[in-house]
Design a binder for these strands. Structure first.
Lengths: 353, 353
DNA sequence: GCAACATGCTACATCGGTTGTGCAATTTGC
DNA sequence: GCAAATTGCACAACCGATGTAGCATGTTGC
C-alpha cells in the first residue's frame, strides 16, 4: 500500500493540479454550524414558521406573499440550507424513507432489484435505504428493528429467511411490510413463478440429453426455502412429464454458498447424472469450479441469469426472473389499502443460448 | 401474472398452512401507537429521563439502581419498545448513520464493497445506508444532500463522478466525506493501484500473443475518469517495456455500458488487434457479445474480476481489486484526525488461470 | 363610517428523546 | 449524633421543524 499526494507523483498523463486551492480538513468557511430555519428567519426578518412553510412548499395555502417566499428561498440557497429531515420526520411522523432488506449483493438478480427499487422509490419521492443481511435471520430482524427506529414508512423484505418475523416486528410499531422474492404469510408478497420457470428449464435439459439418460441432478438452495421447494416440484413434474422419476438422492439442497455446492458434488455417492439443474448462480460457481477441477463438462441449466455464465459452453439455459415486473408490482401493492397477505407470482423468462 | 392465496393451491410438496392465525392487514393488537419512554416511565413509575438513560446505556454513570434498570428494561422488552432514532439523533446530534454513495450494483466489485462496507459499519455500531446513483453526477449530489438531511455522520463516495462536489456539499453542513475507488482532491481517498494492476495485466497479454503481434486494444471506461487514465498509462508503459507503442486509435474509452463497447467494436475503422484489454466487467459483456456474434475468439484481459468471466476460454487474466483492504483502509481513515486529502493506493491481485 | 372579510404574518405547543443541574434520602466518618 | 459524602433519581431546557390558532393590518360592502 502506498500513500501519496493527490494524483500519483509520477503520473504523466494526468495534469498536475495546483494544491493551493485545497480545503484543509473538511471544514469550509461555514464551520460545522448547520443553518436552520431560525437562522434564515433572522436573516430574512420573518418568523421560523414562515420559513418552514416556505421551504417545504406549503406556503401557498398558508397565504404567504410571493415576495417574502422568494426572499427566503434566495437566502436559504445562499446559506446552503438543508432541512433537518430527522426533525421534520419527528414532527410530521412521516419519514419518507422506504427500507429494503436484501440477502446479498453477489449476483445480478439482487443487484438489479436494488437498482430498480431505488429508481422507483425516488420516482415516488421516497428515500430508499437498502441493507444487506447475509441471509442471517438474526441480522434480518436486527436490521428491521433499526429501520423501525428510523420510522421508515414501509419495509420490503427481499428473499428473507423469515419474512413473517419481520412483519410481526414491524407491525408492532405500526409499520407495513411487503415480501419480495420469497413469500410470507402475514404480508402481501410478490415472487417469481418458480414452479413453471423450473419446469420449463428442466424440460429443456431433459430433452437436450435425450430420453434414455435418466434424471437430472438438482444442486443448491435450501430445502426449507419456499422457492427451492417450488423449483424442485417443477423439476419433479418435468421428469414425470417425460416418464422419469427424480429420486431424493438427486436433490442436493446444500445451501447457497458456492463451496457447499462444490463439496456436495465432490462427495457424491453415485455416478454423476448427465445434466445438472443448478438452483442459483452462486451455486453454479461451485458447480463450474467442480467441473473444471474434475475435467468434467456436463450440460447445465441454472435458475437465475448471469451474462457470463450464459456464455459458458456447458450452459443450456438460464431462467431470468422478471425484475422489472417484480419491482413494479411490489410498488403497486404499496398502494393497496393495506391488503391481504396473498402472493402474486410473476412469470420468468427462459433464456436459451 | 397470477394471484393466489398463500402457497400455490396446487402445491403438493408444500404443507398447507392453517389460515386462522393470519393477522388481518398490518395491524397487530398494538394499534399503530408506538411506545415511547413516557409510556414506559409511567408503567415503571419513574421519570422519562431515567428510562432514556437506562435504555441508551448511560445509566451506570447516571447512578441508577440496578433494580430500577432491570424493571424498565423488562417493561420495554414486553412493550416492544423501539427507540425513536430520529428524536435521538435530533437531540444528540449524532445519527450513527454512515452513508455510502455507489454507482451501480451490476458487478461483483461494487457488490463486494457494499457487503463489506455494511459488515464493517455494523461492527462499529453504525447503521449503513447505501444509495446507488447510476453514475449520474446530478443524482450523486442529490443523494448526498438527502444524506446530509438525515445528518449522517460521514459519507463515503464510491466511484463518484465528481467526488469533490459531494465533499463541498457535505462540508457546508459540517459532514465529512471520504472517497473510495475514485480519488478526489478535497477529501481523503482510498483507491486501487490502477497503474500497476493494468501494467501487469497488459504485460501478461502482450507476452501471451507474442512480440510480433502489435498493440492491444483498450476497451471501456471514461477518458476523463482518473482510474481509466491510470490504467491507460499502465497499458501504455507495458507496451513501451516490450518495445511497442499504443496508438490513440487503440484506446476506446467508450463509457461503461456494455452496448457502447459492443458498438465501438462493430464500427472499428481498422483490423482488430490480436488481444483486448477490457476496462470493466460491464464493458466485457459487450466485448464477449461482439465476439460471439462475429465468430471471433480473441484473448482478453479484464480489469475487474468476475467468477464466470474468469472461466471463459478467451480469458487470459483478470485484475481483482482488493476489496477487503480497500474497505478496511477507508474505515481506518475514518479515525484519522480529519486528515489530509491525500490518496492511498491498494495493490491489486492478478488472477490468471 | 363601521361591520365583514381577506391578507400576511407570528406565537406557541409539539414530536420523542438527551443531558446538565439539583435535591431529597440514605449511608458513612468520627 | 451530626456533618459530609454518596446514592438515586426528577426537572427542565433543549434539538429543528410543523401546524394550529390568533392577531394585526388593509380592503370591500352598504
Amino acid at each position: 500500500m502506498l500513500r501519496q499526494a493527490f494524483f500519483s507523483v509520477n503520473a504523466q498523463s494526468v495534469k498536475q493540479v495546483e494544491t493551493s486551492a485545497q480545503v484543509s480538513g473538511s471544514q469550509g468557511k461555514s464551520q460545522g454550524r448547520r443553518t436552520t430555519i431560525y437562522d434564515i428567519a433572522e436573516l430574512a426578518g420573518t418568523s421560523p414558521s414562515a420559513v418552514s412553510a416556505i421551504l417545504n412548499g406549503s406556503w401557498k395555502k398558508r397565504r404567504i406573499a410571493e415576495t417574502t417566499a422568494q426572499r427566503v428561498i434566495d437566502i436559504a440557497e445562499a446559506e446552503g440550507y438543508a432541512r433537518n429531515l430527522q426533525a421534520s420526520a419527528l414532527r410530521s411522523d412521516r419519514s419518507n424513507v422506504i427500507g429494503m432488506i436484501m440477502p446479498k449483493y453477489d449476483n445480478r438478480y439482487f443487484g438489479a432489484i436494488a437498482e430498480q427499487f431505488e429508481a422507483k422509490a425516488r420516482a415516488r419521492g421516497l428515500f430508499p435505504v437498502i441493507t444487506c443481511t447475509e441471509r442471517d435471520p438474526e441480522l434480518e430482524v436486527a436490521a428491521a428493528r433499526e429501520m423501525i427506529g428510523y420510522r421508515v414508512d414501509c419495509i420490503i423484505a427481499t428473499g428473507a429467511t423469515d419474512p413473517d418475523r419481520i412483519t410481526r416486528t414491524a407491525a408492532a410499531a405500526g409499520i407495513r411490510t411487503l415480501n419480495l422474492d420469497l413469500p410470507g404469510r402475514e404480508a402481501p408478497s410478490v415472487i417469481s413463478d418458480n414452479y413453471n420457470g423450473a419446469r420449463e428449464l428442466a424440460l429443456l435439459l431433459l430433452d437436450r440429453i435425450g430420453p434414455a439418460s435418466g434424471p437430472l441432478l438438482f444442486v443448491g438452495g435450501r430445502g426449507t426455502d419456499h422457492n427451492t421447494a417450488e423449483r424442485i416440484r417443477g423439476v419433479r413434474d418435468a421428469h414425470e412429464a417425460r416418464g422419469l422419476a427424480l429420486p431424493e438422492s438427486h436433490v442436493l439442497t446444500c445451501g447457497y454458498a458456492s463451496d457447499k455446492a462444490q463439496s456436495a458434488l465432490d462427495t457424491l455417492a453415485f455416478d454423476v447424472p448427465e445434466a445438472l439443474f443448478v438452483n442459483s448462480t452462486i451455486s453454479l460457481e461451485g458447480v463450474v469450479r467442480w467441473m473444471r477441477s474434475n475435467g468434467q463438462t456436463l450440460p447445465f441449466g441454472c435458475f437465475d441469469w448471469d451474462p457470463f455464465a450464459a456464455l459458458l459452453e456447458e450452459n443450456v439455459g438460464m431462467v431470468k426472473q422478471d425484475v422489472t415486473a417484480l419491482v413494479s408490482t411490489i410498488f403497486d401493492r404499496l398502494d393497496e389499502p393495506s391488503g391481504e397477505a396473498d402472493v402474486i407470482q410473476i412469470p420468468c423468462i427462459l433464456c436459451t443460448e
